[in-house]
Design a protein around this nucleic acid. Structure first.
Length: 636
DNA sequence: GCTAGCTGATGCCCG
DNA sequence: AACGGGCATCAGCTAGCG
């Protein structure tokens, strides 16, 4: 039996940092919950305890200090942790809020947060986490004998893979993953002080629902991490916080030491070529197939024996082969499992094997990896480009029309006489002269395909579902109304209804003119990647220009750290406003006095019309033009 | 003096 | 602290115009 401690609190202050803790207060409620359906790595029968923090900027006015002895509550918190003796402490955004908050309050009251199994104190230190292009600053907390897991960070890790989370707030994620607490209690953050005074039961119900949702989110996102902790020489918490290449390095290191081999120093970086990308046709294609090579880079490393030059013991390929075999086994065990618990366990294992396998190529070009080898990485991608260009040549020879290729796969239109039941034959013909160890898959069949630009396209499947790909279509850097408008247009194009696009454009222009578009649809949300100091230095050095998100964060006078998000919109008049001078926080927009810049947003609608107009007026395919004529913004 | 068009930096996404 | 490749946006600069 394991013990879980959940910290749950009001953390939705838009990434606000608490520079003035004196304005906050703390309330702790201990709730025991039992009988959840297999939450996170917990097993039925484990005991789960939630400590809910409630805070509000003017909380102290409500409680007048008399009713709340914060020092005693913090001591109580220590007592609870010791008594329950949890293995894992889970919470949403606890690294960036709850624990920082508790630490600060404990310091103020002279209380030691002796949460360790040996009685030692909770220890925090500044840390940075790089997840793909995201830099996240946080305070990393560790406590002896226990693992601290933050579902906010798990959500960031998850999103890099699928990029489908609506946001990173607990409630958004819980709803998205289908684990929202049923009939949950919602509370308007601004009414918390009154609620605490008038209806504390309701406030506690709200906090409990937060804890339940944290459990649900962890239940969906934590299992692959928990499974991975059993494979790599990192503990559970470190497994959640360290990158894939660091895990490969640790596996290599462990095996090398076991064999009593010396450990090499990392080699210097060198240029590595990328995957082959090509755009052959733009516009809308009907029946479209997608072939891709199964695990291209790992297969090439195994097929050609590509491994780090410094790996004299041959550990790299042995590990890769072993993980590949074990992934196959785990997938089979998951498929044949007799209980949901077993299926989830083997499924999570298979998933974590896959993540590790895919990281082997990246490891070769990992600058601090002891066995890195940039030349070997370059050989992998060189072979990869050869394989894909070979596939493209075969498609042409077979009378197919290639649309777009990217790294390990090609979208193409089959020959006119091709029929569905010939898919397998066609696949065999395409794969005819692939090297040994390289397997081709037909992994998609679509009713229509809209080829827009490289790495930017849309699919329509036989069930009428539209999938958008590419930053130009789905970037969070676009305003939500742009994404929505693009989605509407692309669907029309895929359904051969290009003539209706203009009406959609006109409707949005009209909606903006009449201020009928809700602020959340025209506000842009950006992630701050630099610290305030780094931003200021770059401006001073003239290497970057002012940007609205940073200017707003700085003007709000609040400290931020990389990874915080800002939502803003553009006010003022006219199309050519300087955005950073007319940006306002989304929270400042008021329905009574709407001040969004109608012309500015209408111009964005017009730009989208200019981008899609050629495709709306001509429904066919055409080769991409070398120099695109500049889109004319003239609407009428 | 004004602006279209270019350049570089940034944020985000594809595989 | 995996990689390279690519698209959209913004600010700042500049060539060419009136």
């Amino acid at each position: 039996m394991h013990q879980y401690l959940l910290l749950s609190g009001r953390t939705s202050f838009g990434g606000m940092r608490f520079t003035d803790l004196r304005r906050l207060a703390l309330d702790i409620e201990v709730v025991t919950t039992e009988g959840f359906e297999f939450p996170s790595s917990a097993r039925p029968g484990d005991r789960i305890v939630a400590i809910a923090l409630a805070d509000s900027t003017d909380f102290r006015q409500v409680i007048r200090g008399d009713h709340l002895d914060e020092a005693a509550l913090l001591e109580e918190c220590v007592r609870i942790v010791r008594e329950l003796d949890p293995d894992v402490i889970e919470g949403h955004n606890i690294f960036r809020f709850d624990l920082e908050y508790l630490e600060a309050r404990a310091r103020r009251h002279g209380v030691t947060l002796g949460w360790g199994r040996d009685g030692s104190a909770l220890a925090g230190r500044p840390a940075r986490l790089q997840i793909a292009e995201r830099a996240i600053g946080y305070r990393r907390y560790e406590v002896a004998g226990r693992h601290i897991i933050d579902t906010w960070i798990l959500a960031q890790l998850h999103d890099v893979g699928v990029r489908d989370l609506p946001g990173f707030g607990l409630k958004e994620i819980a709803r998205h993953l289908g684990v929202a607490a049923p009939d949950r209690t919602y509370v308007d953050a601004t009414t918390i002080p009154e609620l605490f005074r008038d209806d504390p039961e309701r406030l506690m119900a709200y906090a409990l629902d937060d804890a339940v949702e944290t459990l649900g989110v962890a239940g969906r996102l934590a299992p692959p991490v928990f499974a991975q902790a059993q494979l790599v020489p990192f503990d559970y918490q470190a497994t959640a916080l360290r990158g894939a290449a660091a895990k490969i390095d640790a596996l290599m290191l462990r095996e090398s030491l076991r064999l009593r081999h010396a450990v090499p120093l990392p080699g210097p970086p060198a240029p590595v070529g990328g995957g082959h990308v090509a755009l052959f046709q733009q516009g809308v294609a009907r029946t479209t197939l997608h072939v891709d090579v199964t695990s291209l880079y790992p297969s090439l490393m195994l097929a050609h024996g590509i491994a780090p030059v410094s790996d004299e013991a041959g550990i790299f390929l042995t590990l890769l082969r072993e993980l590949t075999d074990r992934r196959v086994t785990a997938k089979r065990l998951a498929r044949d499992a007799s209980t949901a618990l077993e299926r989830q366990h083997h499924g999570a294992l298979a998933q974590s094997f896959k993540i590790l396998i895919n990281a082997f190529y990246g490891y070769l070009a990992f600058s601090t990896g002891h066995w890195n080898d940039f030349a070997a990485a370059d050989r992998v991608t060189t072979h990869g480009r050869e394989v894909v260009t070979g596939i493209i040549d075969r498609l042409t020879a077979l009378g197919c029309v290639s649309l777009e290729a990217d790294t390990d796969g090609v979208y193409f239109v089959p020959p006119p006489d091709h029929r569905l039941d010939n898919d397998d034959t066609l696949l065999e013909q395409i794969a005819a002269n692939l090297p040994d160890g390289i397997r081709l898959e037909l992994d998609g069949r679509y009713v229509a395909f809209f080829s827009y630009k490289l790495k930017t396209y849309a699919l329509l499947d036989e069930r009428g579902r539209v999938t958008l790909k590419g930053s130009g279509f789905r970037s969070r850097g676009l305003e939500p109304f742009q994404r929505r408008l693009i989605e509407e247009i692309v669907r029309l194009l895929l359904e051969s209804r290009g003539k209706e696009v203009r009406a959609v454009i006109d409707r949005w222009l009209e909606d903006f003119a009449r201020r009928r578009v809700p602020a959340r649809l025209f506000a842009r949300t950006e992630t701050l990647g630099d610290t305030l100091e780094a931003y200021r230095e770059k401006i001073a050095a003239g290497v970057r220009s002012p940007a609205a998100a940073y200017e707003l964060a700085a003007a709000a006078g609040r400290a931020w750290q990389p990874g915080d998000q800002i939502s803003y919109y553009v006010a003022g008049r006219g199309v050519n406003v300087a955005v950073n001078e007319h940006a306002r926080l989304l929270s400042e927009w008021s329905a009574e006095r709407p001040d969004e810049n109608v012309e500015y947003y209408q111009a964005k609608v017009a730009e989208i019309w200019a981008r899609f107009r050629p495709f709306a007026e001509d429904g066919g395919l055409r080769p991409p033009l070398d120099d695109e004529p500049s889109p004319q913004l003239d609407l009428f």
